[in-house]
Amino acid sequence: MTHTSRLAVLLAAVLLLGAVGAVAVLRAADRSGSRDRQQAGGPAVHAGSVSLRPGADRRLLVRNLAWGPHRDEIASVPAGRPQGPRTASGVKCLRFHAAAGTAICLQAEHGALEDTYRAVVLDAHLHELHRFPAAGIPTRARVSPSGHRVAWTVFVSGDSYAGTNFSTRTAIVDTRTWAIDDNLERYAVVKDGRPYHASDINVWGVTFADDTRFYATLATGGRTYLVRGDAAARTLTTLHRNVECPSLSPDGTRIAYKKRAPGASPDAPWRLYVLDLRTMAETATAEHRNIDDQALWADDATLVYALPGDYGSDLWTVPANGSGAARRLMTSAVAPAYVR
């Protein structure tokens, strides 16, 4: 065999091996893609139109965590059939909330050296209206009942509320004028009836009563407080200790929140409680696991919140009055919002 013939045989062998390898990779990718499209035991997810407009049926919107091409997209299901097929919007959010035809979507923008974040206000068809740069990792988001105000919280440093080595930044935007309060720590604080000043103040977890009044968590001196905020007066007034990530009930009378339970592990310190704003009486819910979320009121009697699941988080529900038991509402989902 001549030298030229040997080279030809060698080249043919290399090409054949390359082809075999390519076919194997493509088949593996196809099998993987099939698993993504139909996650074993997971919900059915398909692309479609998602709207915040009220319809014939009440709907639940979530960030879909089911593996597949629609992971991290905002998806919709009938509120009465939360385990049913999901309609995915194509809009990806890390945190999400919606009310009255307005939504807030906190997103990551992946760069070559580091990620940056933004807060995007969406209309009733989930189309972008306005965007703002976000100073850190998204963690909480809320829309006022009228849709005229949106709020978000990010971690400026740290990535967990469990310890003390973190710093947050919370902003509120008026969706009619796009005016922004980009740091609620600048508000005047009234603590225990007196003006209060400290360099270690953190504010997070806004929940709106209306377009002026809201509630949030304020941390200072190693303690957390429920504060009532007044956007017109730019004040924060402490109401109750040991309250984090408050959520106001639809009737405006109670706050659901996570509370650091005595004797709990420092790595899993929170239990879910409800505070009566008229009497300041606390009620422990029947959920006894660690809750690191800002619970949502499905109605005046029921709370929805996230717990770790096989694909990131599952949604659970529990009565707000301390009765009953916790039950799984929806798998592979987080950041719920009801379209009423």
Rank of each mutant, 00 (worst) to 15 (best):
S76G: 10
A298M: 09
L303N: 03
A286L: 02
F155T: 07
G193M: 03
D181L: 11
N183S: 14
H197K: 15
G324R: 10
L329I: 04
R59T: 15
G147N: 00
G41N: 07
A333R: 02
P266Q: 11
R176S: 12
V243D: 07
R31F: 06
A13L: 01
G48Y: 01
L16H: 00
G193W: 03
D314N: 07
Y215Q: 11
D192S: 05
A325D: 02
A286W: 02
A162K: 14
G312Q: 02
T168H: 04
A209K: 08
V304P: 01
A75E: 05
N64E: 14
A295K: 01
A56Q: 15
A12Y: 00
G158M: 05
A135Q: 10
L106M: 15
Y215L: 14
G18D: 00
L106N: 05
K191W: 07
C105Y: 09
D210T: 10
Q39N: 10
T175S: 09
S76Y: 08
L226Y: 08
R86Q: 14
G222M: 09
A141E: 03
F208R: 08
V173N: 00
G222S: 10
T2V: 03
V334P: 00
Y257H: 12
L65E: 05
A216R: 02
L106A: 13
T116K: 10
S160H: 10
S247Y: 02
V9P: 00
D210P: 11
D200H: 13
R327N: 14
G147L: 00
V25L: 08
T237C: 06
S332R: 01
L184H: 02
R118N: 14
L17I: 02
G48K: 05
I201H: 08
G84A: 13
R254Q: 15
V334Y: 03
T2I: 00
H240W: 11
L106E: 04
V9R: 00
A216P: 01
A134W: 03
W152F: 01
A301P: 00
E282F: 11
L129K: 14
N183R: 09
W270P: 11
M280N: 09
L94Y: 06
L296H: 13
S167V: 11
D57G: 12
A40D: 07
L7T: 13
Y117F: 12
R6C: 04
S157C: 01
V143T: 05
K258V: 15
S157N: 04
V156W: 03
Y215I: 15
P78Y: 04
G111C: 11
D293M: 04
A119P: 05
L307E: 06
L10F: 04
R81G: 06
G309S: 03
S32C: 12
D36E: 08
L10E: 03
D182K: 11
Y311M: 13
R194M: 13
P262G: 03
